[in-house]
Write a protein that binds this DNA or RNA. Structure first.
Lengths: 222, 222
DNA sequence: GCACCAATTACAGAAATCTGTAAGGACATC
DNA sequence: GATGTCCTTACAGATTTCTGTAATTGGTGC
């Protein structure tokens, strides 16, 4: 079983609850907690420098703003930063989020190892999730498996995500084309972008760009 | 002090926590709890029919989906429905939500009496909130008061909200104009709508409609 | 009545969106 | 090498968006 774990969760009660489970149910005792993303990152880096790496990160997605100013404000940034110094760290996300597309995105884009949805069954799910991840499995939450038929039929690739994000930021197709060219991402012609966006229209059943952005915002994809 | 209170909150631990506070700190003992919106509504209606009305509703905003199919899925619908049978019931919302504009919207549009943000200070805040509401005050959370300078300088009226919602649903200005005309809402000329939307651009610092919808989705206004 | 202001409406033009068609290149299969 | 498919690109036209200006309306106070 894992022997050294970091728990990043700003809601103190939940934080303590997770630690209690790790202690009592899984016999893990070398646990550090962090209520802020930055704090979690620092603890992680220190352990890495001291050659005493954590083997597992359990993190929330959303961290409340507060008097302490943070450079990182979400679990996603934390995961990215930690993976940059320790690429193979196992990551379990423990969050309120229950939108399938968003959770899917975490698995596909950030390669998290497990996801547990805050809720009634959280304790049981967390234990099986940790056990599974320790065995090297990818642990999807039950909600996701059951609703997989409603989920994506095509895979949105990186370009699709870029387009959605740029549109949501109010850039015109022309501006997006120039940006893509500058970053040497192809395709970058205006009509190729048009086609991609039209495909997204079809896929999300959107009437136009504005509608499309509203839909993906609701799904939590951007 | 209030003598009869309903607590609507799906997360069981939080639910019990609230009841404990009401019992011990505020000496309120006639408390009913509900883990589903529909359940809360039914309890409310029964008490109303029996002439033993609740004096206070404490509710979460988001309720998880579940095997039980619900007609109401959010605290907002619950508030609307309960207010329709008992207009002057005091309502305190207890939620994760911490976006000022969204919370403001609850006060302005749904006339809630108090708001408490889930988090570190929740116990203390809930007690002062209930005390204040009992005295007839409107209890805004500290976060809102401190950030009031960043908050709205203009009030978004009903028409603004309609426009935002219609845009988010992908309707063109022409379609919106026709809809408004059909509902006899004025102004309903295309250029008046243009002007209103342009004002929203200025206000939310949006570059275009798509950007505007992305911003108000992030703020949780629609 | 009259001046004044704000909001609504009408109109117009430049820019952007959306939807087609068509041509070219890359790649696999036969 | 020929064929077909998929993706990119170019181009065009209708529609919509966005931003101006100017005319009209309605209400306010003097």
């Amino acid at each position: 079983m894992f022997t050294k774990v970091l728990v990043a969760e700003d809601y103190e009660i939940a934080n303590q609850g997770i630690i209690k489970i790790l202690n009592e149910k899984l016999d893990i005792h070398n646990i550090q907690e962090a209520k802020y993303c930055d704090d979690a990152y620092l603890k992680f880096r220190k352990a890495h420098q001291d050659q005493e790496e954590f083997q597992l990160l359990i993190t929330d997605l959303s961290f409340k703003e507060d008097h302490k100013i943070q450079t990182r404000t979400s679990g996603i940034e934390l995961i990215k930063d930690i993976r940059s110094i320790q690429p193979h760290i196992k990551v379990i996300v423990y969050s309120q989020e229950n939108r399938p597309d968003k959770i899917n995105m975490l698995f596909n884009k950030f390669h998290i190892n497990g996801y547990v949805c805050k809720g009634q069954q959280a304790v049981k799910e967390l234990i099986t999730c940790i056990n599974g991840v320790h065995e090297g499995k990818i642990m999807q939450p039950p909600e996701l498996i059951n609703s997989s038929h409603t989920s994506m039929t095509i895979q949105l690739d990186d370009l699709d995500m870029i387009l959605l994000e740029e549109l949501a930021q109010g850039f015109t197709k022309k501006e997006i084309r120039i940006k893509l060219k500058k970053q040497k991402i192809s395709p970058n012609s205006e009509s190729a972008i048009d086609k991609r966006v039209s495909r997204l229209f079809d896929y999300f059943k959107a009437k136009n760009s504005t509608h499309l952005v509203a839909i993906v915002k609701d799904l939590g994809l951007v």
